[in-house]
Simulated assay, not measured.
Amino acid sequence: MKTIAIIPARGGSKRLLNKNILKLGAIPLLVHSILYAKANSNIIDAIYVSTNDEATKKIAQEYGAKIIDRPEYLSGEFEPTLTALQHALEVIGDSTVENVILLQPTNPLRPENLLHEAFERYRISDSDSLFTVTRNHQKLGRITNNSFEPYNYAIGQRSQDLEPLYFENGLLYISKSRLIREGKIISENSIPYVVNHIFASIDIDTQDDFDYAEYLYQKLITYNS
């Protein structure tokens, strides 16, 4: 049975134009995810980029990814990732595909051994999916009627004594293809895989996000190579 990677990279981003093909370091943003998948070829049998954008298709092909031509009606700003994955599986049409690894181009930097370790955890489990999370260390609250109401702490409580809460960081998702066809990426029995790494703080949607990613890339990768 096969394991494939799907990288959804539609064109038409509003807040950061041409986001997926902007160069982070010396290569376009989405290429970081393609190269990460290629570096894990012992797990991933094929790499697909789902896009409606011609420039993205050209770049993805140059770096060895297969193209899924995503129709415009599945490429809107508010279209969920799920429909892109379902469409990709339909186009691929390979009944031997068992697992889908979702790599979002907006999370371009990942710990080197993350996929290997996470996939092994997933493989030996009975779960239909795995996704990465990171612990939140902030004091959160709500504002109601102009008044702040603490949510995960009591006023005066030390940050290190907060109840552990986690956020979905977007670095990595692994799902059974069957689950995606049924309309889910994360299942009820999904494994939350904890990643405590600075790369988990990167999720590019704005220019500030991109600038932060560029800073970390230069500091932690370029300078240390």
Score class of each variant (00 low, 15 high):
G141A: 11
D126N: 15
T134K: 02
I124E: 09
K139W: 07
D126F: 14
T134G: 02
R135N: 01
R135L: 05
T106H: 04
Q138Y: 13
E120Y: 11
F131S: 00
L130R: 07
N107V: 04
K139R: 11
R135Y: 00
S125Q: 07
T132Q: 07
L140V: 08
T134M: 06
Q104E: 15
H116I: 10
F119H: 10
L102A: 00
K139L: 11
F131L: 06
F119L: 07
P111R: 01
A118Q: 09
Y122S: 01
E117F: 08
E112T: 10
S129Q: 08
K139A: 12
I124V: 14
Y122Q: 04
V133P: 01
L140W: 13
E112Y: 09
Q104I: 12
L103N: 01
T134C: 02
H137Q: 12
T106D: 13
T106P: 06
L115E: 05
D128N: 14
L103D: 03
H116N: 15
H137K: 14
N136S: 13
N136K: 12
P111L: 00
V133W: 06
T132P: 03
R110M: 05
L109C: 05
K139V: 00
N136G: 09
T134A: 02
T132C: 06
E120A: 08
A118L: 11
R121N: 14
I124P: 06
N107S: 11
L140I: 11
S125W: 01
L109Q: 05
D128M: 09
R121H: 12
R110D: 05
S125P: 04
R110Q: 04
L114K: 02
Q138R: 13
F131D: 02
Y122R: 03
F119D: 02
R123D: 09
P108W: 01
N107Q: 12
L102E: 00
G141V: 06
T106R: 10
Y122P: 01
N113V: 04
N136F: 08
R142C: 14
N136T: 10
L103T: 03
L140A: 08
F119N: 07
A118C: 07
L140P: 04
N107M: 09
I124F: 11
H116V: 10
P111Q: 06
Q104F: 13
H116E: 14
S129M: 02
P111A: 04
Y122H: 06
D126C: 09
R121V: 14
F119R: 08
T132I: 06
T134D: 01
H116S: 15
N113Q: 11
I124L: 06
N136Y: 12
S125M: 01
Q138E: 14
R123S: 10
H116K: 15
R121C: 15
I124W: 09
L103Y: 03
I124N: 11
L115A: 03
L102W: 07
D126V: 08
F131N: 03
S129V: 08
Y122W: 07
S129L: 00
P105K: 01
L109G: 06
E117D: 15
E120G: 09
T106E: 13
G141C: 05
L103W: 01
P105D: 05
